[in-house]
Design a protein around this nucleic acid. Structure first.
Lengths: 225, 225
DNA sequence: GTTGACGTAGACAGACTTGTCTATCCAGTG
DNA sequence: CACTGGATAGACAAGTCTGTCTACGTCAAC
């Protein structure tokens, strides 16, 4: 994610900032559980008591990390999408942003998906922050779908979120950027279908039973480019 | 994933089996790191030395778990998809399978995505097993796309994999099954576009490898028809 | 009946975990 | 000057982790 990281000279900054900055790096790179307090302390050049003065428990630092990551990630995301967006393509601009992200040497997947995997309790603060992050992302995607003139931006945004999540996971597992261009293609198709066809999706829930078919339904297509 | 679990009366079975069965449950439910050797041993009612006789290290058990999970998951997947598939809809049948999976009370996401998040080293055996699992899944999806008459099953299969991964992650994070029907919708769109349009435009960045034809490739596809 | 494979029970080592606590240092303020 | 807030270094507690080891039990084949 490029400039999500350092900035000034890290040393000689208030202890709390140094701790958070180290957490941004280690928690994302190595994972939550794999990063121990001792290493966090050693690498941020801080005393243990300074750490516990600012963060009563490791979980508090994890939450601070997630919140800060949330903030920075969207600063980057909004800028990247705005830069890539064109009149005709707002949602597909997301794919271009993803491509840059996946290509970053530090890329290790989505910190919030990863956190969800590492923290068992769904009611935990960590999981709630992760869920909130994805809700915000969905809102972004819905807005982009609306800007693209989609008939049902709420549905398209929700579908787009699935595509984005899938691309992130694929990029993480394979180490390739290709999932980004794959995502671009699917997103373009979503937008195109929603612009041409009437309603593209079950606006809410599909009551279809396990044997229900969705087969035909050939009303949406060209998808052109 | 329903019948992926026990079967006979667990106690009174060879120690190795009891260990693996416990691992299937705990590793998936609680995660790799969060599940300690001691708990594994206690819950499978086995002595520590019996454990280390069969699995020289925890990592060996993790790999055994992943391989067994791989096996059982595809037994379930192939059966579920075969049951749901119709002449006109092979790929969308995957969504119905996912729906059943997501609705399972034990659902905790994809064990292989989760393992990838927990094991840092991309060269580790664990990561390789996870990558192989996804390659196999992609082959399945390609075959289903071919059965649906897609013009370019290799591309559609690859895109479908992104959709499936995204749906899994969304279901895991939200605890809902809706991502399954969302995925059904996107998959139907993929198939429809590929059937009508010529080629589904492998985005500008894809260097157009000419290894198209996949259908003939010898995959292991039990999918009837 | 002895042998050997396989199992159990549980102590132990050594590293690493989060978190507490003492003791010291130093910069700024009154 | 003394005081104080915030930082430091590092010992320590109590628990967990993986992995080793000894000692004993059981059963089947030879």
């Amino acid at each position: 994610m490029i400039n999500i990281t350092p900035i000034g000279d890290i040393a000689r900054r208030p202890a709390r900032e140094r701790i958070v900055e180290t957490a941004m790096r280690l928690f994302y790179r190595d994972g939550l559980r794999a990063t121990g307090i001792d290493r966090l302390i050693a690498e941020s050049g801080v005393a243990k008591m300074s750490f516990y003065r600012h963060f009563p428990s490791k979980s508090d630092l994890v939450c601070a990390f997630l919140e800060e990551r949330h903030r920075r990630w969207f600063v980057w995301f909004d800028a990247a999408v705005a830069q890539e967006a064109t009149d005709g393509g707002h949602l597909v601009a997301v794919a271009s942003a993803l491509e840059a992200w996946f290509g970053d040497a530090e890329f290790r997947g989505c910190a919030f998906i990863n956190a969800t995997n590492e923290v068992a309790d769904p009611a935990s603060r960590e999981r709630q922050i992760a869920a909130a992050h994805k809700r915000d992302l969905e809102q972004r995607l819905i807005a982009l779908a609306a800007a693209d003139g989609c008939a049902d931006p709420a549905v398209i945004g929700r579908l787009a979120l699935i595509v984005v999540e899938g691309a992130i996971v694929r990029a993480q597992m394979t180490g390739n950027v290709q999932p980004a261009s794959d995502a671009r293609h699917v997103l373009a198709m979503l937008v195109s279908a929603s612009r041409h066809g009437p309603t593209v999706a079950p606006s809410s829930r599909t009551p279809r039973t396990s044997k229900g078919r969705i087969a035909a339904r050939g009303d949406h297509q060209p998808q052109g480019d």
